[in-house]
Simulated scan of single mutants.
Amino acid sequence: MANPASSEAYVRFDGVQKSYDGVNLVVKDLNVDIPRGEFLTMLGPSGSGKTTSLMMLAGFETATHGDIFLNGRSINNVAPHKRGIGMVFQNYALFPHMTVAENLAFPLQVRKMGKAEVEEKVQRALDMVELGEFGNRRPAQLSGGQQQRVAVARALVFEPDLVLMDEPLGALDKNLREQMQYEIKHIHDRLGVTVVYVTHDQSEALTMSNRIAVFEDGRIQQLAPPTELYEKPENAFVAQFIGENNKLSGKVDALADGICEVVLDSGERVKALDINTDGAGTATTLSLRPERVFLNPAEGQCQNVFSGKAEEVIYLGDHIRVRMNVCGHDDFIVKVPNSSDKKGLAEGDTIPVGWSIDDCRALDA
């Protein structure tokens, strides 16, 4: 096995597996390196293995197989409280009988810090989350968003190099949640601390992360920066899970120079990038983002042009969402910017729709 200290990885999962019953693996052969200072999000549906992976890193679960390294040292047999990791949970986990300042002081007192140093660090952590005046309040006297900020401050107060966050914004309403996403992102940018974050909310992951690991069925399906995950999904699961996506099924008919011609189930022929197919004669799923589809495309603008019928036109302010019947699919979505030339579109209209080869990806079936 390679010496983990020789690489750039600050956190390393090396061949990690987890089974609760000795038969079924919840996490299957997890290999991932996280450099110091990165904000990595583990994203996936319920039961995909993301939270179990985080809990193994925290020490609350034990790996059935493989090693977890922190700063070049295996921590498989290190107790959770000796790993020096900050944790933030969805339910805040604040002590209700303590003031906010006492909650923050607790992890410092456990580390036997002097009174003056404790007071200074507590005040600095409160100021960081803009709650400098709230030290004497009890958690029950704070709003949900304020309590969550206290939880973030408590995870950072002892200046850990690594902070783990498990669905920390799940209990907040939409506006507060979005505001907290930016706050946590800005704190990360400012402190340069390494963050491993778990969520099932894709927009949260796209907003905050340097890289995202998309989990499904105990494995990482793709690990990449947000733009790459969205623009270049490697398989059909990632394409469907990240953002909105039009899915067209068919068979690969011909292949040349990284481009394939696919015959759709409805008979039309589409040209697409050959990303993850099994070659000519095999089934494939085409992935196409709604904002990459053009209505009434100009001559020569798109290599794929078909007739589409507008089934539903929804005005959403900054853009118009059109559900169309295209190539036998009546759930084909087109998003068009809200500009003056799109005002005339109405339900029942039949118009040409088109997209380029570069925006259409042929993936696994």
Rank of each mutant, 00 (worst) to 15 (best):
L264T: 12
V196P: 06
M1K: 15
Q303H: 02
D257K: 06
I184E: 06
T99Q: 02
T350I: 14
P45G: 08
L131Q: 09
E120W: 08
R137S: 08
N76F: 02
T41H: 06
G135V: 05
V152R: 03
N245V: 05
S48Q: 03
A298P: 04
P107E: 01
K185L: 14
L104E: 03
E102Y: 11
T51N: 07
F69I: 01
R177G: 00
L345T: 15
Y197Q: 01
L288K: 06
Q179Y: 00
R361D: 13
G300S: 14
G132K: 11
R12S: 02
N296Q: 11
R111D: 03
G317N: 07
V305R: 10
D21S: 10
T64A: 14
A116Y: 12
P139E: 01
I184W: 00
N325T: 15
R269G: 04
Q303W: 03
S340M: 15
N246A: 02
P233H: 05
V214W: 09
D318I: 05
D257F: 07
L94F: 10
A280K: 15
I68T: 07
L131S: 04
V263P: 03
S307P: 10
N24V: 13
V214A: 01
H319Q: 14
D33V: 10
F106R: 12
N31F: 09
G317D: 04
L255T: 09
K343C: 10
Q109Y: 10
H81C: 06
A79Q: 13
V88P: 04
K251V: 14
L25V: 02
S143T: 01
R124Q: 11
K342Q: 14
L264W: 06
Y92P: 06
G145L: 07
G317M: 08
I351M: 15
L126H: 09
R154Y: 05
E159K: 12
R111S: 06
E38S: 14
R292E: 11
L273G: 08
L156A: 09
S6E: 15
I85E: 07
N136L: 13
G279L: 01
P226T: 04
R323C: 04
N71V: 02
M1S: 14
G348R: 00
A155R: 00
V238L: 02
E268A: 15
V78L: 10
G348D: 04
G279Q: 04
A79E: 15
L164V: 10
E231A: 15
T207C: 10
P45V: 02
S340L: 14
G348W: 02
M128H: 00
S46R: 07
